[in-house]
Amino acid sequence: MESIRWLLASAGVEFEEEFIETREQYEKLQNDGYLLFGQVPLVEIDGMALTQTRAILSYLAAKYNLYGKDLKERVRIDMYVDGTLDLMMVMALAAFKPPEEKEENFALTVKKAKTRYFPVFEKILKDHGEDFLVGNKFSWADIQLLEAILMVEELNASVLCDFPLLKAFKTRISNIPTIKKFLQPGSQRKPAPDSHYIELVRHILQF
């Protein structure tokens, strides 16, 4: 759900959250037909009950004019978003590993960020010389990349030391008013999963 929070907050959209805290709540949503594939998150918007994170994000990006001006810009946004989601998924799954595997996975994440993902985005910014990743306009791709950068920095604060353009990008995007507000204490932004959250998820989803 966190990437959805990021996108809504960046678009300046206010939203209400309801948290599943028991297995019974989850089963009720499932039995009432809200969870298409038995998965959360669930977003209710425009008279629809949407599931599948990628579908929700693309709908919100299009609705709030963060998805490029044409098909060529949209496919570039999709490529960049999918790349950052790949990196973020490694971190998300690592949180549910045993302690020794978790640390190994986090180290692998930092290595992948420095050798596979961040060099790509550094080159993109260098090649077109613009403030944003696509079309010189703020888009979903910029939001997703900033979220990924901040997640990796929680594992290694100096991860951007060899990427000056990404470092400037992070500062620039972080200062967009809606994002700056979301990064302040007291916003709806959520911290990295702690042990309590992980056990609650395991109990509710039974995995």
Rank of each mutant, 00 (worst) to 15 (best):
M1I: 12
W6S: 01
G12I: 02
E16L: 01
E16N: 13
F19T: 13
F19K: 15
E21L: 14
E21D: 12
T22K: 04
K28V: 14
Q30H: 10
L35Y: 02
F37N: 11
P41I: 07
P41N: 02
L42Q: 06
I45Q: 09
I45M: 10
I45H: 14
M48T: 12
M48H: 15
L50T: 10
T51A: 03
Q52K: 02
R54W: 07
R54E: 08
A55F: 03
S58G: 07
Y59H: 10
A61V: 04
A61D: 08
A62W: 05
K63F: 07
K63R: 10
K63Y: 09
N65V: 08
R74C: 04
V75I: 15
D82A: 11
D82Y: 08
T84C: 11
L85C: 11
D86G: 03
M89W: 15
V90E: 14
F96W: 10
K97W: 13
E103P: 10
E103Y: 10
F106W: 13
L108Y: 15
L108V: 13
L108C: 11
K112Q: 13
A113D: 09
R116L: 15
F118M: 06
F118G: 00
F121G: 01
E122C: 00
I124L: 07
L125H: 04
K126M: 08
H128D: 13
D131N: 12
V134N: 06
G135E: 10
G135C: 01
G135H: 01
N136P: 03
N136E: 11
W140F: 15
I143A: 08
L146F: 08
L146D: 05
A148Y: 08
M151Y: 14
E153Y: 02
E153W: 05
E154V: 10
N156V: 05
N156H: 08
A157D: 12
L160P: 04
D162R: 03
D162G: 03
D162N: 12
F163N: 02
P164D: 01
L165S: 11
K170Q: 08
T171M: 11
R172I: 00
P177M: 00
T178A: 04
K180W: 00
L183T: 10
Q184I: 00
S187A: 03
S187D: 09
S187K: 02
K190C: 04
K190F: 08
A192S: 11
P193G: 05
H196Q: 15
Y197F: 10
L200R: 14
L200Q: 09
L200M: 13
V201C: 03
Q206E: 14
Q206F: 07
